[in-house]
Design a protein around this nucleic acid. Structure first.
Length: 441
RNA sequence: GGAGGAGUGGCAGAGUGGUCGAUUGCGGCGGUUUUGAAAACCGCUGUGGGCUUCGGCUCACCGGGGGUUCGAAUCCCUCCUCCUCCGCCA
């Protein structure tokens, strides 16, 4: 969520940033209008509350005095609050009750205003960082680096859905059990799935200083609001019915971001680096028919996620480090990749800056997104109330970052397609030999 | 699933209708003392919002939400979480 103060004080800069995202800034004007009204009413309310509080206290003392002295005068606070002098405590109470009702009404109205402001602000994406290239859609993304080269074959390389048949990729079985987009793996590929997960987690915990976590796979609504998936992306979520108002997580980012929600961290604890393996559940609404062949885009997939909580002055640096962690994994897996910096028109909802890592797969002849590393600055932290105590003893919002390290299916596609030979055999990269137990699938 | 108990400031732990935003202890910060340190003593020490002549003023917050009352941490309803016991079951 954006800081309402920032919206108020730097309206033009906010609008420019959001405009670069193709976001309709009319909402900003609505928010400002509501905010002005909200503050005006709030001041009015507080004056009345102050008068009522003083009068209520005075009632108690007055009643005490009346017991000893039936002629005790009406306290000034009561007369001030009511604008007149009641005859006795009963009349005072009755009048104060009416006064209280009046206050409740204003309070309710302000509550409504507050909700309207919040609802609108929650639909506003993060401001892109000054470093994020300006562009209107994915064509504006910038390739920042490339690593490795796509293998050249004397034969026509097969796509993974053909190769996979021999190694236990059973799309029909998954379809029968759950529907399309739920792949079933048997034998070699099931084992490869597990080997990859272990390699990833071991790498991050041993080499990169991440703490391994195991998280719930179903979460409350507010957990999804914290990290920014809701209320905006309701149609992307799988939700449980029957009185269980739980959602299946679309990424481990969701539970990990909420680990420190609503708390104030010591500056010395930061940065906090977590990684976790989870299955990810996504409806992929609106993506039907688009690159869905084989396991290019599925409703359930495995992913290891990295998540960092840090101070604002360190987040840019952490973003580079985090991205490198994912890249090093790809290098370990000997997969040719490129780093794309997403432009303002293509960057994710809560991100200020984002790198996508793409692997080139020779069978499908495409660059496949296997990781997305984002700096959310204080956007998630404001929603989730993740703060730290700064040197000046002020509580300040943390910065959060996360990145895939890595998503499984497309890495599996890369391994299958790029390491095939004319006989359809697949030789695994060295790093996997110990994890898989063999050199070949 | 059934029956109980509990959720208060960084932590521990009082408070059961009226100057309570909250006694006290620990921790933290500042000071006195000391060659230095410790100890002792004194003072300060929650969060968020609104207004501000930038000196402050003010409102809300005692797990979340709602209610009763002139007035609620305190009474009522409801939800959440944790603990204990019973039952059932990987």
């Amino acid at each position: 969520m954006l800081d309402i103060k920032l919206v108020r004080e730097q309206t033009q800069a906010v609008k420019t940033g959001l405009g670069n995202r193709n976001f309709n800034t009319a909402v900003i004007d609505e928010v400002l209008k509501l905010d002005e009204k909200y503050r005006e009413q709030r001041t009015r309310l507080e004056q009345k509350q102050q008068a009522l509080n003083a009068a209520s206290k005075a009632v108690g003392m007055w009643m005490g005095k009346l017991k000893k002295d039936p002629a005790a005068p009406v306290p000034k606070e009561i007369a001030d609050a009511l604008g007149k002098t009641p005859k006795g405590p009963d009349e005072a109470k009755e009048e104060l009750r009416l006064f209280g009702d009046q206050i409740s009404n204003i309070d309710r109205m302000i509550g409504e205003l507050g909700k309207e402001i919040e609802a609108r602000l929650q639909m506003v994406p993060n401001l892109p960082s000054a470093q994020t290239p300006v562009g209107k859609d994915e064509t504006g993304n910038v390739v920042r680096k490339t690593w490795g080269e796509a293998p050249k074959f004397a034969f026509k390389p097969k796509p993974h859905w053909e190769l996979g048949k021999h190694y236990g990729l059973e799309l029909e079985t998954g379809g029968r059990i759950s529907g399309s987009g739920f792949p079933f793996l048997r034998g070699p590929l099931a084992r490869l799935e597990r080997a990859l997960i272990n390699l990833y987690i071991d790498f991050h915990t041993r080499e990169n200083g991440y703490t391994e976590c195991w998280t719930p796979f179903m979460v409350r609504r507010e957990t999804l609001v914290n990290s920014g998936q809701l209320p905006k992306f309701e149609e992307e979520m799988y939700q449980l019915g029957k009185g269980d108002e739980l959602y299946l997580i679309p990424t481990a980012e969701v539970p990990l971001t909420s680990v420190h929600a609503d708390s104030v961290l010591d500056k010395e604890q930061l940065p906090i680096r977590y990684c976790a393996f989870t299955p990810c559940f996504r409806r992929e609404a609106g993506a039907a028919g688009k690159d869905t062949r084989g396991i290019l885009r599925v409703h359930q997939f495995s992913k290891v996620e990295m998540m960092v909580t840090t101070t604002p002055d360190k987040s840019a640096e952490e973003h580079e480090t985090l991205t490198r962690c994912a890249e090093k994994l790809l290098e370990l897996l000997e997969l040719p990749y490129r780093r794309l910096e997403l432009c303002t028109g293509d960057i994710g909802f809560g991100a200020a800056r984002c790198y996508d890592l793409e692997v080139y797969a020779v069978g499908v002849e495409k660059w496949l997104e296997v990781s997305s590393c984002s700096n959310f600055t204080d956007y998630q932290a404001r929603r989730a109330k993740i703060r730290f105590k700064d040197a000046d003893k002020q509580n300040k919002l943390c910065h959060t970052l996360n990145g895939s390290g890595l998503a499984l299916p497309r890495v599996m596609i890369g391994i299958l397609e790029n390491n095939q030979d004319a006989e359809g055999r697949v030789r695994l990269p060295k790093a996997l030999h110990a994890y898989y137990g063999k050199e070949f699938l």
